[in-house]
Design a protein around this nucleic acid. Structure first.
Lengths: 203, 203
DNA sequence: AGAGGTATATACCACATGGTAGAGAAACGG
DNA sequence: CCGTTTCTCTACCATGTGGTATATACCTCT
């Protein structure tokens, strides 16, 4: 099962980096020195390959982000003490930036899928659903404890998601304002973003 | 010059809505009841058509946003009094949401171009450069007057841009958290976003 | 050794795409 | 009334695409 993984990896990089339509099966196969028909042997069609890539990416992201949420949240069932909301947000942002540096294709793929919409997006939704639920409950708990300002948790989640994803992935936008997405600058951006979010959430 | 404009309009809707690669010249021509060769008569190639679409969109957006910036900014040359930064930000956000409702293709195209990157993106940069300059100067003035917290204005601009664009355009993300991008919800989102930004900027 | 599944390759196909060539209409100037 | 320019069309082409059919090597189990 070696080849299958190599195909999945190459497809992830291509789809996430250049977009579904812009990538041909020939180019994916060529990247790892095999023929297109070998790709079609493992994955019956281009669509099926995309599905597999999405599923893997969503699983990886959801796992990492759920793990990050547990950081700094001693939340037992029916606990009374409020969790440290800010620590949780910070852990999530750091996890996302880790992906932005080490596996930018994954965040790129996520963007691509939100652009393509239905039916690809449904797979993402399915995989992220527990994450979204948890995040909303988390934010709501923070509002109840007064740690963050009161508002619609879903809207707050969207704002936060957009901001984090944008800053983490939109390299072209950064270049527009004269910033290069180097490792050093990325750290600075992360710090600045955290200040931004902290003000927005707590203020 | 009637046909030319109709082509430009149809291409804008298609490119912005479904992406450059996913749209064929045949489909653009079909949308307005002409043949592909007529499209190629006015615009020598698909690339040239895309350039024209980008240029028009950038010009429209830049004009509207620059106009919005002037709202509530009695900024004369070498003025001493600080401008009302928050009023300016609010005017910009309202202008962006106006586009999100009335011309969503334009914001979609902007997204698409940032995804495609060089060399398309250079045209956007060129058209937005004065806007970016103005925005940075604006934010810096606000920091100097103490109206908003001090930080790198370019990073703050990127954070704000990402947030506004995300909330204004990512309909799929909204659906993920169970929100529909109706007109009514859009107004609510805009209000919530303004509260979010206000906290982030002023805090 | 041979049967059967696993895996990779060659050859091919139907189709859509961007682009070219050139004809026919329609308006316009002399 | 004729030549020129502007515009739109039909017809065609070269290329790249996703996908099928099929052959071939390899490996494992009996």
């Amino acid at each position: 099962m070696e080849t299958r993984d190599r195909i999945l990896e190459a497809a992830l990089v291509s789809f996430g980096g250049r977009g579904y339509d812009a990538v041909s099966l020939d180019s994916i196969a060529g990247d790892i020195g095999i023929r297109k028909q070998t790709v079609l042997y493992y994955f019956g069609s281009k669509d099926a390959l995309m599905e597999a890539v999405i599923d893997r990416t969503v699983a990886d992201l959801a796992e990492a982000l759920l793990a990050a949420t547990e950081t700094g949240t001693p939340v037992a069932a029916g606990e009374a003490e409020p969790p440290d909301v800010w620590a949780g947000v910070e852990a999530i942002v750091r996890a996302v930036f880790r992906f932005a540096v080490r596996r930018p294709e994954m965040l790129g793929l996520l963007r691509e899928v939100t652009r393509l919409g239905t039916p690809w997006m449904d797979r993402v939704r399915a995989g992220f659903e527990p994450l979204v639920e948890r995040a909303c409950a988390y934010l709501e708990a923070g509002m109840n404890s007064g740690a963050i300002r009161r508002c619609d948790p879903r809207l707050l989640l969207v704002s936060t998601y957009s901001t984090v994803m944008g800053v983490a992935t939109e390299a072209e936008v950064l270049r527009t304002v004269g910033l290069e997405p180097t490792l050093r600058d990325t750290a600075i951006r992360r710090r600045e973003l955290l200040r931004f979010l902290r003000s927005a959430l707590i203020g």
